[in-house]
Every structure is written in C-alpha cells, then in structure tokens.
Design a binder for these strands. Structure first.
Lengths: 168, 168
DNA sequence: CCTTAACTTCACAAATTTGTGAAACTACCG
DNA sequence: CGGTAGTTTCACAAATTTGTGAAGTTAAGG
C-alpha cells in the first residue's frame, strides 16, 4: 500500500499515520483515558519531533483549540507531556518525553496511594479480625508490595534500555 | 463512632461498610472501570463470605436485577469474580477469589497484547528508520519487558504471601 | 500603552453512557 | 409437563460526558 493520492509533499504516509493515531488512541480509551487526550498523545508520539504546537494538533486532529487545550492540560497533569514555550513567541509546544512517558504510565504514584488509602479505610471499617477485613488487609499488602517492586522494575528497565539503545 | 441507629442485628457497622463500598468503587471508577461493576465488586470484597447472591447485591446497592446482571457479566469476563450455582436451586452466587483478583488486575494479558500490537503497527506505519518510529520501537520494547517481568513479580508476591499468611 | 497572536474558560448542544421496568428465557421442583 | 424462582435481554428515559463557538485573558511586539 503506497502513498495515498495527494501532493506527496512529505515522506510519511500520512494516511497510515492518521489511522495509527486513531487506533492507538482507541487502546488508550479502553484503558480508561478520555478520547481527546488519547488522540493528542498519539499524535505527539507519532510526530518525528516528538512535539507539536497547539495549532498543528488542532489541524491534524480536526478539532478546536479548546479541545486541544483541555487535552493538553490533562496530559501534563498526568506527566505524560510537558509544555514548553517557543522562545520569542507566544506559541507553545507540547512534548512527549522520549523515555519517560511510559514510566509515568507505570508509576502512577498518586493512584497507588489512593488504592492503599481506600484499602486501609476498608480494613478499619470491617475490623481486622473479620474474614472480610483479613481479605482486605491481604490486598493492601499486595499493593504495598507492588509499590515497592515497581520502582525496582523500572530501574532494571533503564539498564536494559541503556544496553539496547545507548544513552541517546 | 459506634453502630448507627437501627436494630443492631449484625456486628458489622453497616453504615461504615456502605461508605467504604462507595469510596472504594470511586477509586475503581477513576481507574477506568464503570460504576456499577465497581460497586458490585467492592460489595463482594467487603462481604465476609466473599460471595453474594444477585438478590443480596441488588438489595445492598439499591439497584435492579438488570444492573447486577450486567455488572456481573463484565466482572466475570475480566476474571475478577466467578459465578457459582448454589446447589439445588436456581440462585447464583458471585465470588471474589481471595488471592487472585488482584493478580488478574495486574496480569491483564489481553490488554498487554493490544498495546504491543498497536505499537508494532505504529512502527511499521512510521518506518523504523524515522525518529518517531525509533521512539515507538523503544516503547514497544518497554512493554515487552514489562510483559516478561510482571509474571515474575507475581511469583515473588505469591512467595511473600505464603510467608505472611500461610496457604489458607 | 495599544494591538494582536495565542491560549484558556465557559455555557450549551450533541452524543454517549447508564440504569430501569418489563418482557423473555431457563431450568428446578412438584 | 406445568408452575415458578431466578436471571438475562431489550428499548428507552435520564444523567453524564464531550467538543464547540464565542468571549475572556495574557503577554509579545510595536
């Protein structure tokens, strides 16, 4: 399947990329992320520069500046993109950090904390001597365990990554 | 804070438990799970038996049998609860498996596969020699890595759990 | 300072999701 | 076999979520 009809002004198969963006966004959506942030993120991830301006995003995804604004706000709260000013202009660029976005994805410190807190409250509501309380305490222990292990796992990944790709 | 007003026919502080159920469900909802499955799951988790009938769930959560049915279908597809027939009756019970639901949560084989597939397609759409393609290939490698490591991590948890709680 | 490019906020219309009641199944029990 | 307890399916109304246009805000450049 070659380049789609058109002016052929780029080397990228823009149609294929656009299809990928929607596809990848759908996976995010199934993972519980809203559609627009998912699309914006997928677009950034598949851009060669790893960064795009608000206008470029709106253009490529065919959405309003308002939608881009909202999506970007969400993504930067999640530490999945960072925003940077193009020096000497009012234009902002949104960037996906090459080797850190998926760590953010896996890390999710906040989320972990909320689970642990909810479980702790559960144990105390149920009473730690009841069957339900014991089950919940065990679940809590599991979350603590994962919370300890995840950073180690990420550390191992960094080493592996170093081997595979060098420092770049 | 003691038992709420009422007949005091149980030892559980039902109000506190109810509050916990809604709270815990909210954490699930934020993690991208629909409200009703989340509530049903939280109710099961906080029941002493670790299992409830459809009627009990409907009663406790104040929802229709239809809602319970839908929630339970979803949860069992996700392997988070299993259904069992009470022998000699048409009544079904839904059970949360003490030490396996969170493994199901962490496992997520299906999900992993979808991410990997989407990323693979991304690399081929973008071309593995482009900057975007390389970034995506690296992400793919990360997911593969996690896919390998997660089962090992769970294995370690099982050992740890054994130490802490015995085989039960 | 004033103009204006760029981003953000807000109220609202459209689209989607959710839970319900009622009807349709299913399979025990007599 | 028929009655019925229990579950599932389905069409729909209500609630929620989503993206938009337009107005509001911010700060660069004259």
């Amino acid at each position: 399947m070659g380049q789609s009809a058109g002016e052929g002004r780029t080397e990228r198969d823009e149609d294929a990329v656009a299809r990928f963006v929607e596809n990848f966004a759908a996976v995010f959506v199934d993972a519980g992320i809203q559609r627009m942030p998912a699309r914006v993120f997928a677009a950034l991830l598949s851009s060669d520069a790893g960064a795009m301006s608000s206008a470029e995003l709106g253009e490529q995804l065919q959405v309003s500046p308002a939608a881009v604004s909202g999506a970007v706000r969400y993504l930067s709260q999640q530490h999945m993109v960072s925003r940077e000013r193009e020096p000497g202009t009012r234009r902002e660029r949104y960037r996906v950090h090459n080797n850190q976005w998926y760590e953010a994805l896996a890390n999710r410190d906040q989320i972990m904390k909320r689970w642990e807190e909810a479980l702790r409250e559960g144990v105390s509501s149920l009473g730690s001597e009841t069957p339900a309380g014991r089950r919940m305490a065990e679940t809590q222990a599991f979350f603590e365990f994962v919370g300890q292990e995840l950073p180690l796992l990420l550390e191992r990944w960094r080493e592996r990554r170093e081997e595979l790709y060098g420092d770049r």
